[in-house]
Design a protein around this nucleic acid. Sequence first.
DNA 1: GCTGTAACCTGTCGGC
DNA 2: TGCCGACAGGTTACAG
Length: 284
Amino acid sequence: MPELPEVETVRRGLEVRLLGQRFRSVEARRPDLRWPLPPDFSARLRGRKVLALRRRGKYLLVDLGVTSADAVPRAGEGLVLLVHLGMSGRIVIGDGEDEMPQHEHVVFVLEDGTRIRFRDHRRFGAMDLFPPAAEAGHWLLAGLGPEPLEPGFTTAVLRSRLTGRRSSLKAVLLDQRVIAGLGNIYVSEALFRARLSPLRQAGSVGPVRAARLSHAIREVLEEAIAAGGSSLRDYVDASGELGYFQARFRVYDREGLPCPSCGSTIRRIVQSGRSTFHCPACQR
DNA sequence: GCTGTAACCTGTCGGC
DNA sequence: TGCCGACAGGTTACAG
């Protein structure tokens, strides 16, 4: 699925088109996404103005104002729309081609007529609505770890999150409670850049290796965002454009190919049921 | 409490 | 060409 760079790319694409617009209507064609849409989903969104688009980990958060012409909501009147793209979710702006209309589950129509379409053939994606005051305690957001691109994500913070963990580095870095936003692709890529084995016990990472890892995580995410994310099978950005970071993968999906660093053969292993790609010679 | 695995759902791809 | 199984970027529930 869309990991942090893909969600951030979508957020930026939507921000340009949505900010300041109101929802003229919302069509909830299929309410059973990963979880059922909240009650009165469409009615609660209709007429609301988009005040801001934010991202927390892999979650997209849309701040919405009140339904009257008053742009500034009073306490308790605002609403937050949470969107998670799951493994295969896509948000497409405009009408475009409609190759699989049965997988288009929610359509937001803006006051200028623009259609924002949420497609997700696997239906692992999700949406929720809640008042701003409930955000801090929201069950999907409350336990998330630090944002890896925020200044607060330091080597010391990363190391404190790994200390005492006996699971593999790969498994721990995929845990959204440890760091918010990393997924299968960027964990493999960050571990390669940090020259750390995905099989290494997370708690064994000392300050020097933690510094390499925190730097690698930040670097790979920033490069991926600059490239517009990675386009594998399902991902395109909000305007339908392909990301091109996959062309810069150093180990992910490169089983059997030479390591770009030492020339050894890149290996694919399975950890917790997920593919991990690594160079056994470089990564220790 | 921690860890690993299965399950959710559906499209795609490779092998036979 | 068609069928079948494996696999896919995420997250949760549950068993050990």
